[in-house]
Design a protein around this nucleic acid. Structure first.
Lengths: 398, 398
DNA sequence: AGAAATAAGTCCATCCGATAGACTAAATAT
DNA sequence: ATATTTAGTCTATCGGATGGACTTATTTCT
C-alpha cells in the first residue's frame, strides 16, 4: 500500500538487509550464519558479508560456541553485543525524575529514580535537574564501557507544534525538546521527546506485559489519564501525534465539567485526584503516593467510601474501554500507573463490562493485564526507542 | 521503525523504484522524465529505463506535448494510461447492489446501481445476483477496451476468520470471499472482501470529501453504524481487522440494551431504525429510503417528534465522536450514509460539542464534512483498492 | 538566417551488492 | 581411517543504479 517516498539504490538495499539480519539476530540469538540465511532468505554469502559489517560496527559478536550436538560442522553462534551501544531513557513526572540506560540486548545497565515534586516548578529548573541526572547516569554508563547512542524523554503532556502542554507539571507551551537539547551532554544530540503514555506502552511492549500481545492499549493513569496505542508492534500516534487522550472520553454525559472544556470526562471519575476525593481521602500535605497507599488500606478494610469510589472509577473505565476496544480492536489492554495498583479491584468489573459490550461482535475479547514494569515502563520504553532505531538502521551509528 | 520481513535484492529495488516513479506520474501528470528525475531523486537514465518498463506494461503513455514555453528542448509529457488496466468495485447493501469500474486515472468507466432488498435474502442468491451484475459491468468495460485487474467487494459486516457476520443482511458466518471467488468471472481472481465503512472511507479519501484531509474518520451510518479510520493516507484496521465499530460505543450508560450485549450503544440512538422510530415514523411497508425522505420532510416542517429524534441522535453522535477524536486524533470527520442526508441538522450541534470536549487540548478541532460521493463511496473505494495495488506494485499485473 | 545557449533524453562504461555454486573446514557416524 | 553432513568462504556473474559524454529539440542572441 505504501510506496517509499525516497529512491531505492544499492546502498538502501544494503541498509535494509543489514537491518533484517540484525533484527533476526536480536530475535533468535544466539544464532548461526547458516540459520540466518534460512530466516532471512538471503544467501549464505550475503549473510556472512552483512554479519561482518555488523561486527565491525560492534553491534554483533560471536557468543560462546553453544552446540546442540548436530551432525556436521558446528556453526559459530552470533548474538547482539552488550556494548558499546546504549540507549538513554529519561522521564519527568509530577512526582519524580527517572533515567535508565539499556544496552542493545535490552538489559538495564544503569537506572536512577529521584523522588521530587515537579508540579508547578519552573520548567527550566526541572529540565536542569533532569540534565544533571542524565549526565550522572551517562558517566556511570561510560565507566561501564557504554556509549549512549541517543536519548528519549517521556513527558506527561501533549505536543503542539514542538511545544509541550503538561497540565500536571504546570507547563504551558514549553519548548521542551529545544531546552533539553541545550541542557543535555553533547553526545545525547538529537534528543527525542514523547508522551509518557506512548513510551510506557512501548516499554511494556518490548520488556513488560505486552511482550506476547503485538497489539494493545496501554492505560497510563495518574492525575491525568492517557493511553498508548500499539498496533502490529508499532505505536499509533494519530494525525498530529495527539492520539490516545483517553482521559477526555465522555463516560458520564450528565456529569461534572472538566477543565478541558467537556463534560463527564473519564479523568473526572477515574483520575487520581477524583478517586482519592471520592474515597474520602483529604488533600492534606501528604504525597499522593502515601494517600494512594491509604486508599488501598481502606479498600482492604472494606471501607464503604473507598469502595464506592473505586466502583465509580471502574464503571467509567469500563465505558471508556468498551468504546476504545470497539474503535481500535486491540487484543490486550494493559493497565498502568494508578490503575495497575488498583488492578485487583478494577480488573474484574471492567473485564465483565468489556465482555458484555460488543462481545458478540468480536471473535475474542481482549485480555486485561496489569503493567509489569510499574513506574519504569516509560523510561524503559524511552531507552528502547533508541535501541529500536539502531536495530532498524544499523548504519545510523556510523 | 519497521523492518521489512523479506530480503531486499536487485529486483525488489527495481519494484520499489517502479512504484515510486508510477506514483509520481499519478500525482503530477502530465510530467516529463526530467521532472520525474527531480521528484524521485533517481537519475535521468534510471527514470527513462523505468518509464520504458511502465510503457510496455501499458500503465503509462505519452500525453500530447503540453508545453509551457521554457527554453531548451521540450520534454515529452507522461500520464497514466486510461487503459487497459481497470479495477472493479462491488457492493452489497441492505437496499441495493452496486458496481463500478475505474480506470487507472480514477475515472468512472462503468457504473450500475440496482435497488433490491437484500435483507434476509439467502446469501447465495444475493451473491449470484452480484456476480451477474459484475459480469455485465465487466463485459461492458471489455467493450470499452478495459481489462479488469482485480475485484474488491464492500459488505456491511464484520469479518471473523474469513467469514462474514452481517446482521443487516441476515448473514451469519457466511464465507463470502470463497462464494464470490466461485461465482465471479475468472478474470476477477483473488476477490477481496472488506467492510463497507473501510472501503467507503477509502473512496472518500481518494475521490471524495477526504481528498485534502490525509487523516480522518468516516462515519458510515445506515441501520448499523460503522467507521472507517484513515491515518496518513492508510486505513487503520486494528489487530484483527475489526477496528471502527463506532456503533457500539457507549453513549448513554443508563440507556437501552443493544443486541450486541452492551447497553446504551450509539446505534440505539443514532442508527436508522432508532431515528425513524423516535421520529414517529412507522415501520410499515415502505422502504427505509422513503421513510427517511418522510423524516426529512417533517424536519423541514418543524415537527416536534422529528426534531427530538434528531437531537437525541446528535447528542449520541457528539459523545461518540468526542471520544473517537480524543483517541484517534483525526483532522477531519466525514459523515456518510444516513448521517450525510441528515447533515444540515446534525453537523452544527456535533461541531459545537466536539469543539467543547477536549478542545483546549488540541491545536485544531477537526472539521466535519458530509460525504461527497453519497451512495457511491464504497464501490469507488473498492475499485480504488485495486488501482492502488497496481500503483504500489506495477509488476503485479505481469 | 545562423550561432549560441539551454534543457531533455539516450548511450556506455562503471560500480555496488546479491547470487549460485565450487571449495574448504570441522564435526559425527561407520 | 573414511564417508557423511553441515558451516562458512571464495570467485565469477548478474541485475540494476550511476555519472558523464553525447545527441536532439527548442529558444534567444546577433
Amino acid at each position: 500500500m505504501t510506496v517509499p517516498a525516497r529512491p531505492t539504490h544499492a546502498e538502501t538495499m544494503r541498509g535494509l538487509n543489514l537491518a533484517l539480519v540484525l533484527e533476526q539476530i536480536a530475535r533468535h540469538q544466539p544464532v548461526t550464519r547458516a540459520r540466518l540465511s534460512d530466516l532471512t532468505g538471503l544467501t549464505k554469502t550475503t549473510v556472512a558479508n552483512l554479519v561482518s559489517s555488523l561486527e565491525t560496527l560492534r553491534l554483533v559478536a560471536s557468543a560462546g560456541p553453544v552446540r546442540e550436538g548436530g551432525r556436521g560442522r558446528p556453526g559459530a553462534p552470533l548474538s547482539l553485543a552488550p556494548g558499546p551501544v546504549a540507549g538513554l531513557g529519561l522521564e519527568v513526572n509530577g512526582h519524580y525524575l527517572a533515567a535508565c540506560v539499556l544496552d542493545l540486548t535490552g538489559a538495564v545497565r544503569q537506572r536512577e529514580h529521584v523522588r521530587v515534586d515537579n508540579r508547578g516548578r519552573d520548567a527550566q529548573v526541572t529540565v536542569d535537574a533532569l540534565a544533571a541526572l542524565a549526565r550522572r547516569v551517562t558517566a556511570r554508563a561510560g565507566d561501564d564501557g557504554l556509549t549512549v547512542a541517543g536519548t528519549a524523554v517521556a513527558l506527561p503532556g501533549v505536543f503542539v507544534e514542538g511545544r509541550v502542554n503538561a497540565p500536571n507539571l504546570g507547563w504551558e507551551a514549553v519548548p521542551a525538546a529545544a531546552m533539553l537539547t541545550e541542557a543535555l551532554p553533547a553526545q545525547a544530540h538529537g534528543v527525542e521527546v514523547d508522551n509518557e503514555a506512548n513510551l510506557a506502552a512501548l516499554g511494556e511492549l518490548w520488556y513488560g506485559a505486552g511482550r506476547g500481545a503485538g497489539s494493545y492499549l496501554y492505560l497510563s493513569g495518574e492525575t491525568g489519564i492517557g493511553a498508548g496505542i500499539v498496533v502490529g508492534g508499532e505505536l499509533f500516534r494519530g494525525a498530529h501525534g495527539a492520539a490516545g487522550e483517553l482521559g477526555h472520553v465522555v463516560v458520564d454525559p450528565g456529569g461534572a465539567a472538566c477543565p478541558c472544556g467537556g463534560v463527564g470526562c473519564l479523568e473526572q471519575v477515574a483520575g487520581l485526584d477524583a478517586v482519592l476525593r471520592a474515597g474520602g481521602i483529604d488533600d492534606g500535605e501528604e504525597s499522593s503516593e502515601s494517600r494512594l497507599t491509604e486508599l488501598v488500606r481502606r479498600l482492604d478494610e472494606g471501607d464503604g467510601n473507598a469502595h464506592r469510589a473505586i466502583n465509580a472509577a471502574g464503571r467509567g473505565l469500563a465505558i471508556a474501554l468498551v468504546g476504545a476496544v470497539n474503535l481500535l480492536d486491540p487484543d490486550t489492554v494493559v493497565l498502568g500507573g494508578l490503575h495497575a495498583r488498583l488492578g485487583p479491584w478494577l480488573i474484574p468489573p471492567i473485564e465483565a463490562a468489556v465482555t458484555r459490550g460488543g462481545g458478540r461482535l468480536r471473535a475474542r475479547v481482549p485480555a486485561l493485564l496489569p503493567s509489569a514494569l510499574a513506574e519504569e515502563s516509560a523510561v524503559r520504553g524511552a531507552a528502547g526507542t533508541i535501541l529500536s532505531r539502531v536495530l532498524a538502521d544499523p548504519l545510523s551509528i556510523g
